[in-house]
């Protein structure tokens, strides 16, 4: 039962992630490292959903940052403007993204290839511009975001902020991974793979192609929205530029770089792309060069993503153990 083994491996991975902050706390610079891993977790959350959309349903979206920004601004509206608890903000972000993604998917998912890419890109850019021009949310200057308080537990309390958000981000990511893997290995996942390859044949086999595509689109939009909401509270401030075209492209790069055929690749991709500017340190003006170069090189030499490389290395290590 490889699904069982896959879930076991996943649990093991998340156990390690869970222990990291306790380990890093021993070091002075530990807080810095935790602070790097949290955004990776938040991006992973969005990337996992996008992975399902791109890798399994075979659709492209170059506008997913738009859903992240809707999530973020929903939280701002509920918490900053209306004064309600943060949990309602997240609820609103889920509701709005469900509705919006559903409405968008109906006309747009009929498109394919470049047309779909451009349509989603257009949607993302339009959402971005609307928030930039709309002064109610501060326009291009941005707006500050209240603390994330759940049942009087304040995530933004400076004493525990880094660790609290770390666990929040990664728990959500783990949950999304489990849901996604469940889905992929079910009958529905098979249907997805079929329609990815040939929509007409899939329909002839009784698969309601439009329903499946819409569902995955909405699912990925909701995850992106939750990621956006949490990010807003984490940064305590959002600008439209936090979720612009550049971000959408980053998200897609994470998915493709990690490996589109495996959901875990999304996490790998998020890790590599987020860690990049940190590694460059003082040379961060070269970030674009390195980023562009890595994407191009990785896709030319590893068309199945870097996770295939990790799997090969894994397999070789296991072989060595077995020989002993």
């Amino acid at each position: 039962m490889s699904l069982y083994r896959e879930k076991k491996g996943l649990l093991f991975f998340f156990l390690i992630i869970g222990l990291i902050p306790l380990f890093l706390n021993k070091f002075q610079a530990g807080g810095y490292y935790i602070g790097v891993l949290t955004p990776i977790g938040l991006y992973s959350l969005a990337a996992v959903g996008l992975n399902l959309l791109i890798g399994f349903a075979g659709q492209i979206s170059l506008g997913h940052a738009g859903f992240m920004s809707i999530g973020a601004y929903s939280s701002v509206y509920v918490c900053a403007k209306l004064g309600y608890p943060a949990i309602y903000g997240i609820a609103l972000s889920i509701i709005i993204n469900c509705i919006l993604a559903y409405l968008i998917s109906k006309p747009i998912l009929k498109l394919k290839g470049h047309y779909l890419a451009m349509a989603t890109l257009g949607v993302g850019v339009i959402i971005n511009i609307v928030f930039r021009e709309f002064m109610y949310f501060g326009g291009g200057e941005g707006i500050s975001v209240p603390d994330l308080k759940i049942f009087s537990f304040n995530f933004n309390d400076y004493k525990i902020k880094e660790i609290a958000y770390f666990y929040l981000a990664w728990s959500l990511t783990l949950a999304s991974l489990v849901l996604s893997i469940n889905f992929i290995n079910s009958k529905a996942g098979r249907a997805l793979r079929a329609l990815h390859l040939n929509e007409i044949a899939a329909a002839a086999l009784g698969i309601n192609v439009s329903s499946y595509k819409t569902f995955i689109f909405v699912y990925s939009a909701v995850l992106a929205g939750i990621s956006g909401s949490i990010t807003a509270h984490y940064n305590s401030y959002i600008l439209p530029s936090t979720f612009d075209l550049h971000t959408s492209i980053k998200l897609v790069s994470m998915v493709i770089l990690g490996g589109v055929m495996d959901v875990k690749g999304a996490i790998l991709g998020a890790f590599i792309i987020t860690i990049l500017p940190e590694l460059l340190g003082k040379f961060d003006e070269y970030e674009g060069l390195v980023y562009g170069g890595i994407i191009i090189a990785a896709l030319i030499f590893f068309p199945n993503g870097l996770i295939s490389l990790i799997k090969k290395i894994n397999a070789k290590i296991l072989k060595l153990f077995k020989k002993k």
């Binding site: 791109i54 890419a117 562009g292 994407i295 191009i296 896709l299 030319i300």
Partner: peptide
């Protein structure tokens, strides 16, 4: 297709 799109974006 998606790889090519990302590659040209990378360029």
């Amino acid at each position: 297709l998606i790889s090519v799109i990302i590659i040209t974006i990378g360029i």
